[in-house]
Design a binder for these strands. Structure first.
Lengths: 292, 292
DNA sequence: TATGTTCATAGATGTGGTCTATGGCTCCTG
DNA sequence: CAGGAGCCATAGACCACATCTATGAACATA
């Protein structure tokens, strides 16, 4: 009485086509196989499902009742198989990424554009948050991958380094006199410094650097976004500590210039985080491939 | 890429229980079988469906999508199997019978009561009509069986004789003088005769009988139902030609008496008609068994 | 460190799904 | 009326593959 579910597939096509021979063709089987399969179904139910006519078969009362269930069931399976093919094909699915606003805007954006153009059926979900928040999202399965500043040390995570970024101090026209000089740290501190307000990796790193030379780094102004860091520096409100790559346009056009220091500032890397030993979704693995 | 549908059953239980081991228990399989089945599904889609944790398995994004389809599909199959069991068990289903009003009332009623009491889940459909109409219904599949007067000759039908019925002439108190006499046909014709109006087998048979003796049988009154035949006779409007078994009560209580004739009237049989070489529905075959 | 989970893997086994060949039964057609 | 072309059913043979046992690896718990 334990029925092989493939029998329902055979039943479905036999009922749908009204012919065992036709069903056999659809299923790439021989007619005796189909005949045998139907017989098996009938035997295991103890119910005759088809009238055998000289010109084919027709559902009995009970067969018609069975068909009303099996038809829907088979259609769902077909839809499921189509959906899986679409997911495999990246015609469907979703990609959930966690990261900071600035990395989305200045680092991921071109990749996202490219990906979206190639796979318009895949929904993009961008979640921004601090690095610890991103890690939590990842562990809770709320995102597929996280894009944050290195270093990350977490045994559950697999982090791969992506491009290197270089933070630096920049100023606008107001401090033009600094353009061709090389400043010491102490000299720099005589100018108003603008830093990112959140507990960002970059802010912590630069604070530590100054600390290690014996200087406390206290910003004149703290702002909540990279855009504001840039904007304030341009308006001459102080010297901003920003990622050089994120102000490439402003450096190019000359609305900002980089302040050279005696001390070399540490570079930082972008890290792509995924869960260790957890398979990536189709979309996510394709996207990670794209980034690397 | 042609997937064995039993794999979906395994997938369903693995997802539902969150454990390959549990799924194996539910399905009466071993854990390696389940493990292998899931692997097969994953391989044929080219998509990982489960995260393997030390404490079981969890659906991936894609696995969850598959599950949303497969769950409904499996539930439908379960419902189908339950339904088939109910049909087999005669807890569900329908029984469609064709026949004449009088046969339903006087012949089938006790069987129907009995059947309905034993199988209250089965819906009864009673279609009344003339014998040719009943035969048409049967051939069109609109009824499962027909109950009519014999003889029936039709190669497509399988007719089994049921009880024998005896038609006879009856009268009420108004004709009490006939109670202890034996009438000849010609004598009978001096009284007003009440016949069934429709082209019934019984009417045709008796007309032919009179014909064969050279008497034309022309009824004084024609009525459309057996009940009226009885009622008119009781009220003394004439002598009714009815089935003896259908007026058993009236004969017993003395409101009608049978008129004895010199000529013996032909008996008639009730026939149960079903389609030849066509399987009966569960309900119908049980009911036919009951009648025989 | 020992024990009990989990799932994965390897290799053996035998059921049962599928095949070919054939027959019986209608219906249609020359 | 014979012959052909459709149906579906049956019989018997075969081999793929679903399932099993045995074992391993990873992790959690006590």
């Amino acid at each position: 009485m334990n029925i092989n579910y493939d029998l329902y597939k055979v039943f479905y096509w036999a009922a749908k086509t009204g012919s065992l021979t036709q069903a056999a063709k659809v299923l790439y089987l021989t007619q005796p196989s189909v005949s045998h399969a139907i017989k098996q179904l009938e035997d295991s139910f103890g119910i005759t499902l088809f009238y055998r006519n000289p010109k084919g078969v027709a559902l009995t009362q009970e067969g018609a009742i069975l068909y009303s269930y099996i038809e829907r069931s088979q259609i769902l399976i077909s839809l499921a198989e189509e959906k899986m093919a679409a997911l495999k094909n990246l015609d469907s699915g979703e990609l959930r990424i966690g990261g900071s606003d600035s990395l989305f805007k200045h680092y991921l954006l071109p990749y996202l554009e490219d990906f979206h153009e190639k796979h318009p059926g895949i929904k993009l979900h961008l979640n921004h948050g601090t690095t610890p928040e991103i890690i939590t999202f990842l562990k809770e399965g709320k995102i597929d991958l996280g894009v944050v500043r290195m270093p990350i040390v977490d045994p559950q995570l697999e982090v791969t380094e992506s491009i290197q970024l270089q933070d630096c101090f920049v100023a606008g026209a107001r401090y033009a006199e600094l353009k061709d000089t090389v400043l010491s740290l102490s000299k720099l501190l005589q100018y108003p410094v603008i830093l990112f307000s959140r507990n960002s990796r970059a802010r912590m790193a630069i604070t530590e650097l100054f600390q290690s030379y014996g200087y406390p780094l206290k910003p004149e102004i703290e702002v909540g976004s990279v855009d504001l860091l840039i904007e304030f520096a341009r308006k001459g409100l102080g010297i901003s500590y920003v990622t050089r790559e994120f102000v490439a346009k402003e450096l190019e056009e000359g609305s900002l210039f980089e302040i050279r220091l005696e001390v070399e500032l540490p570079p930082s890397h972008v890290g792509i985080m995924i869960m260790r030993n957890m398979p990536l979704s189709m979309a996510a693995s394709r996207f990670v491939e794209l980034i690397r």
